[in-house]
Design a protein around this nucleic acid. Structure first.
Lengths: 230, 230
DNA sequence: AATATTTTTTAGACTAGACTAAATTTTATT
DNA sequence: AATAAAATTTAGTCTAGTCTAAAAAATATT
């Protein structure tokens, strides 16, 4: 059963409130479990006591369902707001990479600022300007203006078998250091990857991109690359 | 005598501090007089008492010279920060109009948000993307990255004489209603204007744009249009 | 020059959001 | 089941920025 939120989400929420909603959304991550106070505190780089205060506030605003000592879930409205922020974040990242020559490892922090700019028209125009992209520079799906998210079915590169061919669709680790490492290889979104060998010793892979010559990647790297069968 | 600020202006200032500095800069407007507390309060839509508090704070940070009961002036550093915000504001306005199909009457509010985004690279790239514009969509000059402002020598359209030809370079009134009025005429930045007649009765003007046919504008309108001799 | 008016500042209070320390509730361990 | 440990909440404090009301200084008026 699905509830779709038709409420107007463009009531003013503070920057802090928006960041809490986003953090809760990311901690839920598809699962139906309630999010704990400590988990939010860690994600927000703040203390549990501060989180409790904010949870009361968000609960009063009907953006989360909050039960003392139990945890929180987003309401339909809260989730829609969170998805709208994520939409803006990913569209801005795409804009920075596609139009302003930013590297995919340097857009995150800046998008954290830009995602809070409040203007429906701006978002719509950026979307149009980019020709309605479906994923951001890291392969993460961009929610549509109704907060609908296209779920992409991808698996970790580490789960593919020898000689299989797949296409890189995203990354798990978004850290600049990992993205910078990838930039040194030929591994980018859309790369056609063939697993030419798997080494039993350390589970490292030998892969080839397109018709290029094979090279090694560690199992650690393979576990942070998303790919879909062709 | 001119003092050029070579200090790093990228120390963090709050959004509120930035808005105060901008307000003070705009109130000084080239003149050397000190700005009064009440004037700032009015511009910031706040109360004089709140302004006094902030002036102390900005004074402690060496961004303004503040003497009790006398008024304030920006220090070189304060002025540089203000100009940097104005630079960002005008570049964003230009971006919205040139790239995202915004009208010149609807960009101001949005640019008020965008001007506080903190990223040197972003500003540099937007500037480059727009091919280093010298003026914003309203004809206001865009300060360069050192905070230098190209002063444009323009006069009010109401000061020109009969049969003179000039080019529209800007507007005095930036309100959406005035800009929307102009959009209904052919008066835009760069328009070649010939004063075909001046009516003694109400000081209204008959003007022609390029080779178009003449039409009337009130003196009130003429007083809000900037133009330079060809 | 004395008084009235306006402007500005001070003093004290409020809100959002954060913190520490203490209290409470839940969960884990014996 | 009793107790220990961990998680969470409460209570009280702090800062930034705002406010009102009162005090002080500057300006204007008689």
């Amino acid at each position: 059963m699905f509830y779709i939120c038709t409420e107007n989400i463009n009531t003013m929420n503070s920057l802090t409130e928006e960041n809490y909603l986003k953090a809760i959304y990311k901690l839920v991550d598809g699962e139906k479990v309630a999010v704990t106070t400590n988990a939010i505190a860690e994600k927000m780089n703040t203390k549990a006591a501060s989180v409790t205060d904010m949870l009361k506030k968000l609960s009063d605003k009907k953006l989360i369902n909050y039960e003392k000592y139990y945890g929180v879930k987003l309401t339909a409205k809260g989730e829609k707001i969170a998805l709208n922020i994520i939409r803006k974040h990913r569209l801005w990242e795409m804009f920075l990479v596609e139009k302003l020559e930013f590297g995919w490892d340097e857009v995150h922090e800046l998008a954290e600022q830009l995602e809070h700019i409040n203007s429906e028209k701006l978002v719509a125009q950026i979307d149009k300007f980019l020709d309605y992209p479906k994923v951001d520079p890291h392969g993460d799906p961009i929610p549509d203006s109704n907060g609908k998210l296209q779920i992409q079915k991808s698996a970790l590169l580490s789960t593919f078998k020898k000689n299989e061919v797949c296409m890189m669709t995203g990354v798990v680790d978004h850290s600049p250091s990992f993205l910078q490492y990838l930039a040194k290889t030929e591994l980018t979104l859309g790369s056609s990857i063939r697993i030419s060998d798997i080494n039993d010793f350390d589970r490292s892979l030998q892969i080839a991109i397109g018709k290029g010559k094979p090279f090694f990647i560690s199992n650690e790297v393979a576990k942070n690359i998303l790919a879909s069968v062709k």
